[in-house]
């Protein structure tokens, strides 16, 4: 069986000038950003909580989480509501703030190239691969790495 020609849908979005794609399996919906309430004593990238039609969700600044400068909220800012796998297989829903949410595109498995080595990245690359359209690069985001449950649940790691 050859899956390499099978295409899968991805949602593309931007952080600054960079283009990203995320498998739509993770994406519940995309909403505009409204008010959010900061929860004291939480990491900076955890912007606070939002009210999504009566449901309370945490909102994360995707750029801050990646070690980039804080997102400046504009009219184009969007929240991607993501379904992650929390602890003990519980469903964990979060909102991820991005600069721009674009469109859903189909990407074939064989179009995705292996992620190059990011020399200057302190951790392992937060992408699973890249899509190179004649020099127009789209990074396929490693959702489970960027929004690792370990991180966002603020599990205290032993500080050496």
């Amino acid at each position: 069986m050859n899956n390499s020609h099978e295409s899968k849908p991805y949602l593309t979005f931007s952080l600054g000038d960079e283009k990203f794609a995320i498998s739509i399996n993770f994406v519940q919906e995309v909403v505009e950003i409204g008010q959010y309430t900061k929860v004291p004593r939480s990491p900076d990238y955890m912007l606070g909580i939002i009210n999504l039609r009566g449901k309370v969700l945490p909102l994360l600044d995707t750029k801050l989480k990646l070690g980039l400068p804080k997102t400046v909220i504009s009219k184009k800012s969007r929240i991607m509501v993501l379904d992650l796998q929390g602890y003990e297989d519980r469903n964990l829903q979060i909102g991820a703030l991005v600069d721009l949410a674009k469109e859903v595109i189909e990407i074939k498995e064989n179009e995705i190239q292996e992620a190059p080595d990011f020399q200057n990245s302190q951790a392992s690359a937060p992408v699973t691969g890249i899509l190179n359209n004649q020099g127009d690069i789209t990074l396929i985001m490693d959702v489970e790495k960027v929004f690792s449950v370990q991180d966002i649940m603020q599990i205290k790691q032993s500080v050496a």
Binding site: Q35, T37, V39, V56, Q154
Partner: peptide
Amino acid sequence: KPLSEVYQQQDFIVGSTILGDGSL
């Protein structure tokens, strides 16, 4: 409304509540 479980460390907050203007 319970806070999302990502805020387990912030146990000094019992939960949240939605106000009349939709904010929390």
